[in-house]
Design a protein around this nucleic acid. Structure first.
Length: 298
RNA sequence: GGUGCCAUAGCUCAGUUGGUAGAGCACAGGACUGAAAAUCCUGGUGUCCCUGGUUCAAUUCCUGGUGGCACCA
């Protein structure tokens, strides 16, 4: 029988955790988290990791397994998940992946190309040049080193330009030469389910959840992470706003409002990501039985 | 009660020497192969408070209302 990976995606606060646990329980299987923030050990409240009770119901993987201080990315995630999946498929015919990080989901479902690791000196030098000389000199350099990428990447997005440049400089070969047009083949079947609900209800859930996070002590969680705030993952919604409060840039009330607003934006962006992928089967989170039924039919 | 100021997008406000209007935020849509909860792009959604007048034409000027704010009583 074919092994199947069922992906359960959706915007933040839509109810993926509860729905996922129900589905996984029904199929007596385990859950792979596809959440680029819940993977960090040091953050709990602001990233809305499943509660200890929820985690006891179904075995979860990739929840709070690494430190903020480690480098992590979609490619590492891809390889780790594939390893874990091959183990899980020895025991289960179906494994559930639950999360809202579109890039991480895609890394597992279609793969991303392997790139050489970058010398921190190369990266830091480029960052410094970006700050001192601006984006334009870097895009001009990209035109010389990798004209294909120059015409392909968003030249107004410094991250894209820096990525292409750092690979080209590091290897002496154009970044574009590392990218293949074909997706990687997987040895398992993939079914995709996405959750959504009325926008207004979703926004209310987001606002409510932020209030609950504050009641649960998000502020003290953030205070205790002050010494780690230079790490990239600390730019997450909920943390960066409260750092601004701690810096005296915002009133607490303003910071909380901003967390709500940025969470809503994030939810919209997630929906954009999942919408472009037309293979998603869309459901409301309270239709778990329908979802299970659909999975069984496939 | 009197005087003065204000009334324009969901909010805060700009503006039109008279030709039906635009910023920020909100909101909406999109891009995205190693920071992805990141980063980047696009879109104005409007009885310009109401009434009457002047005018070819009023959101703009004038009259009278209404509401808000300030000061004086």
């Amino acid at each position: 029988m074919d092994k199947t990976l069922v992906v359960l995606a959706g915007p933040t606060a839509v109810g993926k955790t509860v729905c996922g646990i129900e589905i996984a329980s029904h199929f007596k299987t385990e859950i792979i988290s596809a959440d680029s923030r819940q993977i960090y050990r040091e953050t709990t409240i602001g990233t809305a990791v499943p509660s200890p009770e929820e985690l006891a119901l179904v075995h979860h993987h990739f929840i709070q397994t690494i430190s903020l201080t480690e480098t992590y990315n979609a490619s590492i995630y891809e390889h780790q998940v594939l390893d874990r999946l091959s183990q899980l498929f020895e025991k289960h015919d179906l494994v559930l992946m639950v999360g809202g990080s579109g890039l991480y989901i895609d890394a597992v479902c279609r793969g991303i190309d392997d790139l050489p690791s970058i010398d921190p000196a190369v990266r830091n030098n480029l960052l410094k040049r970006f700050e001192e000389e601006g984006l334009e000199t870097l895009t001009r350099e990209l035109l010389k080193l990798d004209p294909v990428s120059y015409h392909r990447v968003d030249l107004r997005n410094h991250m894209r330009v820096l990525k292409a440049l750092e690979v080209s400089i590091q290897t002496g070969k154009p970044y574009s030469s590392f990218l293949s047009a074909t997706r990687k083949e997987r040895s398992f079947r993939i079914l995709r389910v996405a959750l959504n609900m009325d926008r207004e209800i979703l926004y209310n859930r987001i606002n409510l959840r932020v209030d609950k996070m504050m009641e649960s002590g998000l502020l003290s969680e953030v205070e205790q992470l002050q010494h780690l705030r230079s790490y990239r993952a600390m730019k997450s919604v909920g943390y960066r706003e409260l750092f601004k409060y701690l810096d005296g840039e915002l009133l607490l009330e303003e910071a909380v409002d901003l967390i709500k607003r940025n969470s809503r934006k994030f939810a919209r962006k997630q929906l954009t990501w999942f919408r472009k992928e037309d293979r998603y089967q869309w459901y409301s989170p309270d239709n778990t039985q329908q979802i299970i039924h659909w999975i069984e039919e496939q």
